[in-house]
């Protein structure tokens, strides 16, 4: 699986420190943004999964700069901050990496709607997985409706997140 990754267009080398840190920094920022207490009615329960967007974006475009260990630590940090069962987000981000790396060649150098469709599938699967996992952890059947709305919000906001991450990527790393 991993060899396939390195056989698709070789990733341009990045030597500048800021550029090397960009994927980790933005994903960590996404984790912090997701716990910000925005005073919007009902927002807390429906907060989009910002780290999923960042992990998806960077795993497609720069999987080398967002290694599994970084995903693991960021996921754990998010769990610790949010008060969710510890390990859940870490696992989600790592599974995202597996899912995306396996299909990365379909996404690189494709137009945005294609990438967005991929994310839609991923977000739906992720939310279903999260729901299942939380049901097991809480030993009860949890309400699925919030998860659906949350998935929809996550999918809807992805273009904006992707645009901003792409801009940051071009600004800091140059074209690539």
């Amino acid at each position: 699986m991993a060899l396939k990754v390195f056989s698709i267009p070789a990733l341009p080398r990045v030597n500048n420190g800021a550029a090397r840190l960009l994927p980790v920094a933005t994903t960590l920022l996404a984790a912090v943004i997701s716990v910000l207490p925005l005073q919007i009615p009902g927002y807390a329960a429906l907060t989009p999964v910002f780290t999923l967007m960042a992990a998806y974006h960077w795993t497609i475009y720069r999987p080398d700069l967002l290694p599994p260990l970084a995903l693991f630590i960021i996921g754990l940090t998010e769990d610790l901050l949010a008060g969710s069962p510890i390990g859940v987000n870490a696992m989600l981000l790592l599974l995202t990496r597996i899912a995306v790396l396996g299909h990365r060649r379909y996404f690189v150098n494709r137009n945005f709607p294609f990438v967005w469709t991929g994310f839609t599938l991923l977000a739906a699967a992720a939310m279903f997985g999260l729901w299942g996992l939380h049901c097991v952890i809480d030993l009860s059947l949890l309400d699925f409706r919030n998860a659906i709305i949350r998935a929809a919000l996550t999918i809807a906001i992805f273009p904006l997140a992707s645009f901003m991450l792409g801009r940051a990527q071009r600004a800091v790393m140059g074209a690539g």
Binding site: S34, V35, L36, P37, L38, Y43, A44, A45, L46, T47, L81, A82, G83, S84, P85, L130, W131, H134, D138, L142, D143, N146, A147, R150
Partner: peptide, 15 residues
């Protein structure tokens, strides 16, 4: 002051 929300559908906590 409330400084963080649980941000998710499955936990209701604040920091």
């Amino acid at each position: 002051r409330v400084i963080a929300n649980s941000g998710g559908a499955f936990v209701r906590m604040i920091l």
